[in-house]
Amino acid sequence: MDRVKQMDLAKLSVREVNQFLHHDLSNDDFERIEILNPDGLHNIAAGLDHTVDIMILGHAGYFVAGMNKLAHVTVQGNVGWSVAENIMSGSVRVRGHASACAGSSGHGGLVVIEGHASSRCGISMKGCDIVVGGDVGHFSAFMGQAGTLVVCGDAGPNLGDSLYEATIYVRGKIHSLGADAKEEPMQPADYEQVAHLLTDAAIECDAREFKRIASARRLYHWNADARQEY
């Protein structure tokens, strides 16, 4: 049996491809599934729950590899909004740039954006790890509850606004921190964590160059005296 299967979105609908990936695929059927001509279409390879390697050869649209479980999805191009949103496990790698909300609400697994990620990267992340080779846009990791965002480039305005217990590491400049986000000293465990994630992401950077951003935890409790000013 041919161990690499190609599915062409110029000939098949996204629904047909996804139905195959959801229902007609056993764990060891193919070494890799290649998806051709993604051409910015939405929802490609969303909702997977098999251990399978998916290679998307081109630019993908919104929600690519959304809700991913177990699968390893690579996009050889750019992606639209909400790549790997709500990822549960497995990994999603984007070789190009990602638009807004990359890895949003992700519970687990690893999201790698080799280029830049736009605004709201990792918004409301709940335990996944996100490694961005370039910059992230404004309000990244907004309300991040758990997990780690590693930014090898710069971060845009309001980084980590209303952060819960997600941790952010930034190598470059931070335009501004959001409400209740603060820079904290890097501890040995932080360097270890960053180095570990960079290795997993196969992105070459020196973990010693990163800063740590975490929640100041002042928004956790209502403070009448603060008069809404935090």
Binding site: D39, G40, L41, H42, G58, H59, G61, Y62, N78, G80, G96, H97, S99, S118, S119, G137, H138
Partner: peptide, 22 residues
């Protein structure tokens, strides 16, 4: 608004594709 409406333009595969910043 979206790449999918640019996807079939001639030469787009080698175009400089970017998202404008705020």
């Amino acid at each position: 608004s979206e790449f999918r409406s640019l996807a079939h333009l001639p030469g787009v595969a080698t175009a400089r594709v970017f998202e404008p910043v705020p």
